Computed example of a mutant assay.
Amino acid sequence: MQNTNSGQVRAGLSFLVTVVALGAIVGLAGCDGGGSAGSGDTIKIGEFASLTGATASFGTASHNGAIMVIDAANAAGGVLGKKIKLITEDDQSKAGEAATAVRKLISRDRVVALLGEIASSRSLEAAPIAQQSKIPMVSPGSTNPNVTKVGDYIFRVCFIDPFQGTVMAKFTLNSLKKTRVAVLTDVRQDYSVGLSQYYKDYLTKNGGTIISEQSYSSGDQDFKAQLTSVKAADPEVVFVPGYYNEVGLIVRQARELGMNVPILGGDGWDSPTLTQIGGPALENTFFSNHFSVEDQNPVIQNFVRDYRERFKKDPDGMAALGFDAAKVLLDAMTRAGSTEPAKVRDALAATVDFQGVTGKISIDPERNATKPAVVLAIKDGGFHFAETIAP
């Protein structure tokens, strides 16, 4: 019995060794062949975006812009002689999903770079994972300054909230000639909290006064209590740096209460859904943005034409940013002559005067984009150019 058992043990061990060895061979084959993001004939780039959920307009638009770039590059032969595969994960506009998506893109799909997100809170979830893995991440539109502070592999092609807040404060003081302001902030969004603070800082240091501050949370539907308090303070302007879903309701309810003063915001307003929700109540409102379809620059008009032809609608600022983020990333790979993440990172950091749809993009030492902003006025249901404000 003992000898028989010993033979069975030896046979079992032999079988186990064989299985482990085969597994190692398969694993190595996977690492060398289709599993390596920059090997073979394909370059894998990951994208995480809110394609569904509360801010789906943002993710859908930025994704549209990105796929325009990828498809055009592939039609022209790809990058470094290889075709590009864009692997997109929907974070559903939910907290926690961006981190899950990025872990999957890096560990399972083994992408060499990442595009995303628009919302700052979701970029802040994902950025530490990209940084730890040393995978370059380019955010199209996360404007909270903390995003790129995560580390030297995190970049963006948009301006940041200290600049955007200053832009709208300057517009309040210099263009509207108003000084008494009420501020309504979404306390659940890093974007809104930060932008409110930068707006208030510049305004109060340059002759303005904040006479009322109110807060709300993403997903709220009724803002009458906050707006009643704001109305009692009798402001000349109301600043609402939130996202389009709530902003449309806030403006409608403000007008219902008889508040006809200018209402201002940031690029989080930029969605066709805003006008669907707010309707005529949005007259006499203004927001900062990254570009205007009315700009006659040939680079912009070519983009607008191609976007309209493909998607049968006008592009918004998030589409333009998604386009620019993908273009800047592919340009960095081309200049690096490699898809090795460290080399791509270095090339991204060296980006100077790249001509994008949203302006000339130069990446500063903090990996932020230095570029102008535009202010758009909402009139007759459309977004119309008001003015440009330089850095």
Rank of each mutant, 00 (worst) to 15 (best):
D234S: 15
P128R: 08
S292L: 09
R335E: 08
T209H: 13
V247I: 13
T228K: 10
K82A: 05
R305F: 11
V138Q: 03
V304Q: 03
T166M: 13
G33S: 11
Q214E: 15
F163L: 11
G268K: 02
F354Y: 11
G12K: 10
G207E: 11
E125W: 04
P298V: 05
V230N: 00
A390H: 15
A369D: 06
S123F: 01
D295F: 08
G34P: 15
Q214F: 08
L124V: 02
T100M: 14
Y198A: 13
G40R: 05
W269D: 05
A336P: 01
R367M: 13
R335V: 02
E125P: 05
D32V: 13
V112D: 02
T42D: 12
N174S: 08
F159V: 03
D71W: 08
D353H: 06
G65Y: 00
V181T: 04
L114M: 11
Y202P: 09
S120V: 04
D90W: 14
Q296S: 15
V147Y: 06
A66T: 09
R255N: 06
L257K: 04
V304T: 05
D161K: 02
D316A: 01
T88W: 02
R308I: 13
A377Q: 15
K178I: 04
T4L: 13
F303Y: 14
E387P: 07
V102N: 00
V147I: 11
R180Y: 07
G359V: 03
V150G: 07
I45L: 07
N3W: 15
T370D: 14
V357M: 00
R156S: 07
R108Q: 15
N146V: 07
G35F: 00
A99V: 06
V238T: 07
A281V: 06
V328E: 00
N146P: 10
T339R: 01
D267W: 03
V240C: 04
I135K: 01
A281S: 14
V183N: 01
R345I: 01
D316H: 05
G35N: 00
A98Y: 08
Q189M: 07
I87M: 10
L257Q: 10
T358A: 05
D380F: 01
K134G: 10
N74E: 07
M318K: 07
Q164A: 08
S39N: 12
R255I: 10
G381N: 09
M333L: 12
T55E: 09
T172F: 05
D295Q: 11
S288L: 07
A29K: 14
V79A: 03
L28I: 11
E89S: 07
F286T: 00
M1W: 08
M1Y: 13
L203T: 05
V138D: 04
A21Q: 09
T100H: 11
F323Y: 13
K94A: 10
G53I: 02
P280Q: 12
A54P: 11
V19D: 13
D306P: 10
N297Y: 13
L28C: 11
R110I: 04
G141E: 03
M259T: 12
N174I: 09
E366Y: 12
I43K: 00
A126W: 05
E117G: 08
